[in-house]
Design a protein around this nucleic acid. Sequence first.
DNA 1: CCGAAGTGTTCGGTACTGCCGAATCAGGTT
DNA 2: AACCTGATTCGGCAGTACCGAACACTTCGG
Lengths: 284, 284
Amino acid sequence: MPAPTPPDRYTVRSVQRALRVLEIVSSEPVSGMSLTEISQALGASKSTTLATARTLTAHGILRSIDPGPRYKLGTALIRYGDLASQQSPIGEVCLPILREVSAATGMTARMALAEQGYPVCIERIDGPGTIRFHAPLGRREPPHATAAGKAMLAMLSEERVSEICRETGLRRHTAHTITDVATLFVELDAVRRRGYAVDDEEEVDGVFCIGAPFFDHNGACAGAISVTGIKHDLPGWKLAEMGRLIGHHADEVSKLLGGPGFLEVSSRLSRVTGAPSGRVEAER
Amino acid sequence: MPAPTPPDRYTVRSVQRALRVLEIVSSEPVSGMSLTEISQALGASKSTTLATARTLTAHGILRSIDPGPRYKLGTALIRYGDLASQQSPIGEVCLPILREVSAATGMTARMALAEQGYPVCIERIDGPGTIRFHAPLGRREPPHATAAGKAMLAMLSEERVSEICRETGLRRHTAHTITDVATLFVELDAVRRRGYAVDDEEEVDGVFCIGAPFFDHNGACAGAISVTGIKHDLPGWKLAEMGRLIGHHADEVSKLLGGPGFLEVSSRLSRVTGAPSGRVEAER
DNA sequence: CCGAAGTGTTCGGTACTGCCGAATCAGGTT
DNA sequence: AACCTGATTCGGCAGTACCGAACACTTCGG
């Protein structure tokens, strides 16, 4: 009994499989994976897996380490990753500003793009501090539990935010995560008033972020920049002071993209929602 | 008349095609490519190309920008690239050292892995200078025309070097490129004596590099670190002084990898080749 | 020292997938 | 409005890319 409805007409199964292989291999951080391990995780025969792996290897997407070939991610991915961040001219534009932010705050500075409402970090400048946390690039981060995410959500319509909340389910990450829509809306309102968002141990315990959105030439929120640090050794900065700094630099990014500053966007927003906008302009 | 010999039994054609799509899209730096453009470059029908592109897009490898969908590299590639450089723990280990080198010299510091004799840069720390050149990651660079390449070649057997030369054909990049095997061997000998390699406008006009090899726990040359700068505004450094600095830091990398220092390797080499080793130890 | 069990690799045959081409649809331009 | 460019849809055949089973090879354990 052949399936009467092809799963998806516009999809290439072998390519999908290849991409799943990539996913599988990337999940094994350091030691690489053997062919059988991959084929088991993939649920396909070894011969199929071998052909796929060979093809990927020939293009440098994987590399096989003898003996007893173990597969790891190949250097071509590094190249493509590098090219991908260049294809967003935003990344290029942001780097000097991130460097400035990192130098001024001594923290790790990051830039995230808005990808269907989710923040995806595409650039990062580590601070001089010795402590490093795993801040991977290219990962969709939880919108409700990160500074960049909340900065971006605050610029979206109430309906869109609700939609995103339904998708993610407002998953709890730490004791401080906002897991309830009403509270989130209050928080987003505060973000709009202040011009920057704060993540106070809401995604990772002991870690603290401040983020502010930037805007492209259409006036849409294109992403956010943020700084990340260990809460414990947060230096003598005042929160508001640092928030203003990040906001200022986010506006610089907007300007480079030909977009409006936060002030402009926010006054437009508050005119629509009818909220008083006085505080906004006073703050930033 | 179907080809009696299948092109390659152990290869998946649709995956190959997909990877060629990736290659094609990555070649268009900024504006993205339309479906027809891709399908023309690919030499396949639009329907086929569409299915492939859709599959890649669904996994975040490409992203399609409306209107009139134009395809660009997706953020998943950034993630994989990041993971790939972490899967080489060498990259992780090197970063602080690269930072140090960059800070000490004011130039762009880079780290290349040895991939079948070719240098592939996987990490880079830009110097504070304003001038930036395109130093892409993950690309196989010409071994005979770069400092990192020559540093690595100098650690290989004469036969292996000849082999690589045959492969590349010692292509000329600038007026200063070494295009003849005999000259290259003399140069490599000098590299072995000095402990560092110099690329004096041999790959790109006006650009200047110094590189030194590092070694893994098997004592094999695993790669090289190098600094790159504009020849014109090369500061008041003495060449030998900077060479020693790079060499010193390369040795630090070796140590972190559990490998021998340059001195150790080079004395072993010269014992084999019978060349006098006195100079080597005096230099570094 | 020799088996046994685990690898990775090769190869036939066949079901089905993924290819092409032509037709349709959408949007912008003259 | 008619045109044109480009994206999308769909039918149908061909070939390919699956699977399974047999074959090498290494690594243990007895």
